[in-house]
Design a protein around this nucleic acid. Sequence first.
DNA 1: AAACCGGGGCC
DNA 2: GGCCCAGGTTT
Length: 330
Amino acid sequence: MSSDLHSALLTWYQRHQRRLPWRGEPDPYRVLLSEVLLQQTRVEQAIPYYHRFLQRFPTLEALAQAEQEAVLQVWQGCGYYTRARNLHRLAQQVVAAGGVLPQSARGLRALPGIGPYTAAAVASIAFGEPAAAVDGNVRRVLSRLLAWEHPTPKQVQEAADALLSALVQQKDARPGDWNQALMELGATVCTPQNPGCGGCPVAAFCQGKASPAHYPASRVRKQKSLELVALVLQGPEGVYLEQRQGPVLGGLWGVPMEEGPGALERLLARFGLDSAELVGPVRHEFTHRKLHIRVYRAPWVAGENPVRRPLSRLDQKILALAGASPTQPV
DNA sequence: AAACCGGGGCC
DNA sequence: GGCCCAGGTTT
């Protein structure tokens, strides 16, 4: 009964899986890198960063020896920059402890930036451990299979564990393939909108196919508006940049920015300026923030070429508007 | 449990 | 404009 579901999905996966750069890679470091890049990031967006990152940091040892700023430079534009900082820390910890990645989900889970999903994904894909990896795809696929509208994380994990346990009963079970098959189904067939139930290999087992849009119920997200002022200081050598601190874009560089009433006055006071020229507005959205930035420009005595620093998309927009975009060195 | 953390593609 | 992505950490 249940093994029909397993064989149907695994057979489908053998035939329909996408060719991805990290598929079939034996190097656990590459598997780990791919999984970290794929955290809340679409496959198509992650692929170029995967190649860039490996070209610059081919091994865990190379990554461990790098400066954090160099790591962020490669990660620039990919978002969720704590991933890059944590992966860097992870490399340094593992190399300091002998240079070998833990091979169990439990051991991996203890490393920075590795949560339950990534630990299970790497342990199963790189080391064959039967650990159920539950991501957004698996949550959606199982919610629909079982017609669960409001599944708790625990419920989903237990359902995934049960399915994997049933698979492991069989001979030559490959937990990594099973996890990837579930995720591949969610990414290409059992999609959030307009799922392709007609071509689904497990439609016969699905209790939610009559109304897949009901499962699971979408989450509520609030987006707050924020008023900001940015100051682009232009000197003979380039633009004044500072390293951002704190949780938002931490570790990246950018132009001075202030929030709320009196933001411009505070910025001018910081640099002892009387006035600055209004260049224009920049709008930028994060998942939970809608930023409205008034960009000002003023001459300054010192600055640098922004191409040498890791910048967020937000600061790239600001610099572009101010006519101070990064220029490649000749 | 809920909030917070980027950027992007699709409808 | 809404949705959500091969999630993790903090509160």
